[in-house]
Design a protein around this nucleic acid. Structure first.
Length: 709
RNA sequence: GCGGGUGUAGCUCAGUGGUAGAGCAUCACGUUGCCAACGUGAUGGUCGUGGGUUCGAGUCCCAUCACCCGCUCCA
């Protein structure tokens, strides 16, 4: 059985140095994780496997590593700036979608006023706030804040609303100097207020008090900017915001904020967002690596003299300011992608017997699916285990309304993660047609622009087309994009490899002890259930929920009946919510936990190519210098080729278990016999079987079994 | 975003307003012949952070941060 909860995997990762919370010293920052000594090995191995399998073993692929920061124009023409940067709302009634500010600008004055009033009420803004906070107070309150970047960065993060766009420049009635001071003081004042509502209220109040106004005086813009993305849904409903297309009150969704791109600046810019200077210097951290490949399509094609079809692969970091990150490293704001852009003939040039875009798409889905299964499986897996692994992967075609703006079709490869996460996307194979290359090209024919719903690109200096000597025609190629998450791959392989195994049968006496303890728990719990029922019947609050306790007892009976093989499940049963506040359970837990620990091992049955450590070498006794010396010599013999560790800090059994937990495929023990006949014990991870192998034969023995290419 | 929960030693956790604890881990010494051995000793804490109540707060109150679960949303 692989991991049955993400929590198990999380624990192992933090305890054994795979993943640590980011910025932990300062309390942590949501959604950022650091990869520890073993995590970086695993991640590197995943990337290496992918790189070798997608580039080295094919004849039609090249590699690339493009810059993270690219011209802002890339994101303007790719469509990301428009669709990633403004809150959008849907009307559930008719499926129409609007930019929030556009929608509001079409409302009547009455509706807008109602919105503002409700916002004020919702935030419980104390009216005094507007009276006490004056310009003098603010300006005089300047001191320790460091130089600020932009209002948005300062205020929006402090107020704590991701959707807030309080980024318009201050009224021009202030001098540049005054403005900078004001920003600092404002940020400071916001800092001092105890609640989020008051912070927001302050910002709102200041707009009126000190003439801090958006450049654009449209009230709709201001409100749209101020609305928290999360409260907007209720406000829109309460204020009866109307759908301009039919004039009826809409059934609005939460606005989905697509401002997923992190902003930064090139050069020493400290200008406020919205100014020309800022706009000029602005860059985004890439939200996908794909555009770097499109930028270099023509370079790679010419430099490597490639003919379509061919592909370009890239591994790199991407950044998205996700609104709801979570599930450990599944959805993070900084992540790593492994992307292929595979360039093919447009449909009209495909000849008889050649693959069209649909067939290429299918082939890539199949290829990638095989890749996932290959590395999700340990070579020692039985047929049944392989089937079980395969059943946790699936390819699922996206429905039309799920498709991204650039895709004709996308097939997601998903993995069934443990616990509440469930099926999760680990790779998307998209048919992006000629959308991207056309979007970045000048002089694209009118009909193609129309087909792709693109505007003519007057910024581009190039046409990203290709002369096909075979078709004797010039065209902009189509693209199939298999795009996988490297960090999600790590989570996938960890979940699939995780196993808790019972390796030592508990004695009959120990099992009887558990059974009698369970009987005691039942006796006590039944009493509690009766008490609770009495309380509830009398209309009072009960300490226990009878139904939950009942469910717990049923689970406990069921697992205890299946001992000893259900040993680990008994422990899980004790964590059932119905077991809370039951005294005997508290007493019962520690000895059971101890027994489970003594009788089980945690093992990561990782594919050897992915294992962070390939080999561990131990001396049987650490106080015999000859053994230590030989063991270290063996370690040194392999350390140039792969990660190998030497350890003598515990008894031999414990050393084995430690390596099991991190998925080390082989352990070597050097004993006294080794000194005489030059053989060592090689112990295999999954079977725990041992074999005597000559030290001189180790290279061949290991390279065959580690499957390193 | 809403609701619920958690946060005490590196890890797992106990601690009912009155001197901060246990097991494991770590380190030292001794012992130890292949699957989580043992003995002795030692190290390790501003109890997530900031305020408040109190003679006194890990414990009560407020705020805040992080993580987990459920709902909502999203890819």
């Amino acid at each position: 059985m692989p991991a049955n909860s993400l929590e198990q995997v999380r624990n192992l990762c933090m305890r054994r140095g795979f993943v640590f919370p980011g910025s932990a010293v300062y309390g942590g920052v949501a959604s950022f994780w650091d990869y520890g000594p073993l995590g970086v090995e695993l991640l590197n191995n995943i990337k290496k496997a992918w790189w070798q399998d997608t580039i080295y073993t094919r004849n039609d692929m090249e590699g690339l590593d493009a810059a993270v920061l690219m011209s802002r124009k890339v994101w303007q023409h790719s469509g990301h700036e428009a669709t990633f940067s403004d809150p959008l709302v849907d009307n559930k009634k008719n499926g129409k979608r609007y930019r929030l500010d556009h929608l509001l600008s079409q409302q009547t004055e009455e509706v807008l006023r109602g919105l503002l009033r409700r916002l004020v009420q919702l935030l419980k803004m104390p009216p005094e706030l507007f009276e006490t906070i004056t310009r003098e107070r603010i300006v005089s309150d300047i001191s320790s804040l460091l130089t600020s970047s932009t209002l948005e960065a300062q205020i929006a993060t402090k107020v704590g609303i991701p959707g807030a766009r309080l980024d318009q420049p201050l009224s021009t009635t202030f001098s540049a100097n005054d403005r900078a001071e004001l920003i600092r003081a404002l940020a400071r004042a916001v800092d001092e207020l105890p609640t989020k509502a008051e912070k927001l209220a302050l910002v709102l109040g200041l707009q009126d008090q000190i003439g801090w106004q958006p450049v654009d005086q449209e009230p709709s813009l201001r409100i749209a900017g101020i609305l928290s993305v999360r409260v907007a849904k209720y406000l829109l409903a309460a204020a009866k915001v109307v759908d301009p297309s039919d004039g009826s009150v809409g059934e609005w969704t939460d606005p989905r904020s697509f401002n997923l791109m992190f902003k930064s600046h090139v050069g020493p810019v400290e200008a406020a967002v919205g100014t020309e200077e800022e706009a000029h210097a602005r860059v985004y951290l890439r939200p996908e690596t794909a555009q770097g490949i499109f930028m270099n399509f023509a370079h790679v094609q010419r430099a490597m003299a490639r003919k379509v079809p061919f592909g370009v692969a890239q591994i790199g970091k991407a950044f998205r300011n996700e609104i709801t990150p979570g599930n450990f490293i599944f959805r993070t704001r900084e992540f790593e992608q492994m992307e292929i852009e595979f360039f093919i003939k447009p449909p009209q040039f495909v000849k008889e017997g050649e693959k069209n875009d649909q067939q290429w798409h299918e082939e890539w889905v199949e290829q990638r699916f095989k890749w996932w299964l290959r590395y999700a499986t340990s070579p020692s897996a039985t047929l049944e285990e392989r089937d079980a692994t395969a059943s946790r992967f699936r390819a699922r075609a996206q429905t039309p309304d799920e498709l991204a703006h650039y895709a004709k079709a996308t097939t997601d490869i998903e993995y069934l993660f443990p616990g509440s996460l469930g099926w999760g996307e680990i790779e998307g194979v998209a048919n992006r047609t000629d959308f991207d290359l056309s979007a970045h090209s000048k002089e694209v024919p009118e009909e193609d622009l129309k087909r792709l719903k693109l505007e003519a690109n007057h910024d581009s200096t190039e046409k990203l087309d290709y002369f096909d000597p075979d078709a004797k025609a010039r065209y902009i190629p189509w693209v199939i994009e298999p795009s996988a998450g490297a960090t999600r791959a790590m989570l996938t392989f960890l979940c699939e490899a995780y196993h808790d195994e019972v390796v030592t049968e508990p004695t009959k006496q120990q099992i009887d002890q558990i059974k009698s303890d369970a009987a005691m728990i039942r006796k006590n719990a039944e009493k509690k259930i009766k008490e609770a029922q009495k309380e509830l019947a009398a209309g009072r609050e009960a300490k226990h929920d009878p139904a939950k306790v009942e469910a717990f007892l049923k689970l406990l009976d069921e697992t205890v009946a299946r001992l000893p093989e259900s040993l680990t499940e008994v422990l899980t049963a004790l964590d059932h919510e119905g077991a809370q506040n039951l005294e005997p359970v508290k007493k019962f837990r520690p000895p059971t936990e101890k027994l489970v620990e003594d009788c089980t091992r945690t093992v990561l049955r990782l594919h050897p190519a992915l294992a962070p450590v390939k080999l561990a070498v131990f001396p049987l006794k650490k106080n015999k210098p000859e053994l230590v010396e030989l063991a270290q010599a063996i370690k040194e013999r392999f350390q140039r080729h792969f990660r190998v560790v030497y350890d003598d800090s515990a008894g031999i059994g414990r050393l084995y278990r430690r390596q099991d937990e991190i998925g080390t495929p082989f352990c070597i023990t050097v004993d006294f016999e080794s000194l005489e006949d030059g053989t060592v014990t090689v112990r295999e991870r999954d079977s725990m079987e041992q074999e005597r192998v000559k030290i001189d034969d180790l290279p061949g023995y290991l390279s065959e079994r580690l499957q390193l290419s």
